[in-house]
Nucleic acid binder design. Sequence first.
DNA 1: AGTTAAACCTGGTTGC
DNA 2: TGCAACCAGGTTTAAC
Length: 274
Amino acid sequence: MPELPEVEVTRRGIDLPLQGARVLSVETGKPLRWPLGVPPQDLHGAGIERVERRGKYLWMQFERGRGGLLIHLGMSGSLALRRGGASPRGPHDHFEMSTTAGTLRLTDPRRFGAVVWAPSREADPARKLLARLGAEPFDSTYGAREFHAALRGRRTPIKQLLLGGEVIVGAGNIYACEALHEAGIHPATPAGRLSPARAARLLEAVRGTLQRAVELGGSTLRDFRDAHGMGGAFQAQARVYDRAGHPCPRCGGLVRRMLQAQRSTYYCARCQRR
DNA sequence: AGTTAAACCTGGTTGC
DNA sequence: TGCAACCAGGTTTAAC
């Protein structure tokens, strides 16, 4: 469900409403990927300043001295902020924070997600989890030259390098496939063998793909819901992802599925070149 | 150091 | 219908 666009759409849905709100109570369900790190009641009374994003992580900054929460949606997580009456917690609701601006609830069936407290973004455990992340795709100071330089000498297939997030964050399995298709690059191409021109084209494709997905409200491929419970519209835009056997919308070739590092990759063997 | 596999967990879909 | 196998949007950790 959540790649960068879904996380950003979620952030935009909760940031302003939660700014200035105060935590009333916190309940946890089954264990998530990492423990919260503090007793839930320690968060009571904390004022929320804002919600930021780094890669696919959200950082909820509390008022001075109260630290913050690092939130990840994993594979199947979604956040919803609801005002008014409290509906009962369901079996997959593993974190619930009641605030003066409504109740924020993390629903995550697979529990690969996490909510972790840290004294600050720059302090462990947040620092450690954010440390290896690559460039933000919407960072205008990051350019094709840096991107190409980061690929130099890497023999890893470009699709896997995009997924890894050490070079550039945000593209998960769907958007990595879509961006490579848009750039006309075969997913198995060794990253270091991309010419400067093709690397530049790929960087722009990643940016464009993610940007358009944010504007469309995120992917709705399965059951993505933003913080208001609305689905996104990116699904209709997917050109290759989950479309094996269909014709490539650009060249009419057959969209194929292959495995890379145990993840499905969808691509057109005719117009995506090594 | 770079690259790849295993691990975490539940639920929906597919195929026999 | 039942049940096993496979698949799913992520990322860390351990192992070659």
